[in-house]
Amino acid sequence: MEICRKEYVGRMFSRLIFLGIFALSMAKQAIAKPIWDAQSETAFVELLCADESYFRKCFEVTQPVCRKTLRQAVKKCAGVTKGVTEMIPLHTKMGLCVGARVEKSWSDRKSASTDCRNREKWQ
């Protein structure tokens, strides 16, 4: 009886280990690693610095300056994504940080146009 219990516990233990490893490997497969990488940055910067974009239309900045500032802001905002384990929130946080930072730093260059005060116009 004692032997049986040991065998049972041992079998359960190895099953648990197996299941744990399996779950871990599945989890690794299942969840795309959240990351803000060069690709994200390129797409982000290109979209936000496009000719018709909010940042270009509402601030007196050239495209190179726009790109450069955004990239700098991305670096400064790197910390906000720490501990974020999902892709979309990670990107959202980064976007919010960068956008707000750039908006503030360019406040003296902002156009007086009413469109530039209307959020819906740019969403």
């Binding site: 936000l48 976007g95 956008g99 740019w122 969403q123």
Partner: peptide, 12 residues
Amino acid sequence: LIGGGVAASVAA
């Protein structure tokens, strides 16, 4: 803050 919203949406 428009810039933050726009950028967050794009990034999302």
